[in-house]
């Protein structure tokens, strides 16, 4: 007959309070005791030790601090040149953005802020670009190909902006231009050659 009772008993015994396994972690055991207040480990790391000042040592160190070599000749001027005086931002600010920067219109002081300066710069740049583009392609018409119709006058220029063809377009040219997949006619010789 199978003795199941013995099997159960053995398991319970192994885990009984007071057994070896439980006892290993009992308060007062070696493991716990290692971290007990008053032990060597705790004393070694006592907070007051870290905070204590060593005034004698401090005085000695300060009195006998290693000498610091003197600065090289003109180091100050060199650093100033590298930073303040040579800074493009400083120059920019001193001209336009800084506290003293003012643009004078009709005798009235007008302080131009950062965004004002940016706006003016953008407008000026855009004007220059358009002026340049206008000079180059000023006479060129960029039109929607789909709107090209017989009877209209087509102006076709070369890359320099010189009008090389200016004539009324007929049915054949209209159909050709409608066949071009580009949305806009770029009025250069290449386009003309495609006709």
């Amino acid at each position: 007959m199978k003795d199941e009772t013995r099997f159960v008993d053995k398991n319970i015994k192994d885990r009984h309070v007071g057994d070896r396994h439980v006892g290993d972690r009992h308060v007062g055991d070696r493991h716990v005791g290692d971290r007990h207040v008053g032990d060597r480990h705790v004393e070694d790391r006592h907070v007051e030790d870290w905070n204590c000042e060593d005034e004698e040592l401090s005085d000695f160190l300060r009195a006998n601090a290693p000498d610091v070599p003197r600065a090289g000749r003109n180091l100050e001027d060199k650093i100033m040149r590298l930073t303040v005086q040579n800074s493009w931002r400083t120059k920019f600010r001193s001209i336009i953005l800084g506290g003293k920067a003012q643009l004078w219109f009709g005798g009235e002081g007008f302080h131009l802020g950062v965004w004002g300066a940016v706006f003016v710069s953008v407008v000026v740049m855009a004007a220059l670009v358009f002026a340049f583009a206008g000079n180059k392609y000023g006479e060129v018409r960029y039109g929607d190909v789909s709107e090209v119709a017989p009877g209209q006058v087509a102006k076709i220029a070369d890359v320099s902006g010189n009008i090389v063809v200016e004539e009324e377009i007929d049915e054949f040219m209209t159909e050709t231009m409608h066949g071009i997949e580009q949305k806009y006619v770029v009025a250069v010789n290449d386009v003309f050659d495609d006709f």
Binding site: A65, P66, V68, P69, A71, E76, M80, T83, S87, T90
Partner: peptide, 25 residues
């Protein structure tokens, strides 16, 4: 910080010795 040259120069004169001492040590 507003890019005043004289202030930066004064700041340099005040703190350069500290930087030299600390760096050399």
């Amino acid at each position: 910080s507003k890019r005043d040259e004289e202030s930066f120069r004064a700041l340099y004169r005040m703190y350069a010795p500290k930087a030299r001492g600390t760096l050399s040590r």
